[in-house]
Design a protein around this nucleic acid. Structure first.
Lengths: 106, 106
DNA sequence: TTGACAGATCGGAATATTCAGATATAAATT
DNA sequence: AATTTATATCTGAATATTCCGATCTGTCAA
């Protein structure tokens, strides 16, 4: 172990930094954060997510596509509905950090 | 408590989502992630950070300004050197998540 | 089989971000 | 005082992102 203690974390190489930055950029949008928050509690349709964000469903579709491309989400078609759900296990921890940090700190 | 268990986290309101998204966007750049990583281990000058990132120092300056504007960093001038350091306590946790998630998963 | 519904895709306009070169400031050195 | 060093600011070009309207595909219901 090149780093004492139990909290040792390796630092990231250039390609890893690049990848992490891209994923953070994908996360860095208020509607997408809201969508992730909801999906961490279960799967939802495009329409449900759209209504919750207050945006048209075709824009929701694009946010979902972006996150799917990054490996955050997957979808399941049922009839004419499409259900999205989280497949990246790291998202829960990152959202925990974000919520802990940005939920009304009074 | 409106949410059972010890891991209860409130969900974020619109302004909080906006603020969280802005901060994530500020984090979402490979050079800025590298800078944060270094500063989590101690304070460094603009020139040191620039060399570590392999970019000119005037660009490093701008990255540092962006992060300072978000309340991530502060600076201390000593002679003609300027030392930057972390002042946001949440950054350690977020970087832990990112490193855990993106350090070579083999 | 026609029409309505849910979702996805395309094209473009508005806006934001990144990066580089030139210039500026301020402290240290000669 | 003039030069060098360290950092910061300004401007603009290239690129990326966000958002919208229009259109397209598939599914369900009458």
């Amino acid at each position: 172990m090149n780093c004492s203690g139990s909290k040792c974390l390796k630092s990231l190489g250039p390609q890893e930094l690049q990848q992490a930055a891209e994923c953070l950029r994908t996360l860095a949008h208020p509607h997408r954060l809201r969508i992730i928050e909801m999906l961490l509690h279960g799967s939802y349709t495009v329409g449900e997510l759209a209504k919750a964000c207050g945006i048209p469903s075709h824009m929701t579709s694009e946010h979902l596509r972006l996150m799917r491309d990054k490996g955050f989400l997957e979808l399941e078609k049922r009839g004419r509905r499409v259900y999205y759900y989280i497949i990246d296990p790291g998202l829960q921890h990152i959202m925990d950090c974000i919520q802990k940090r940005y939920a009304q700190e009074k």
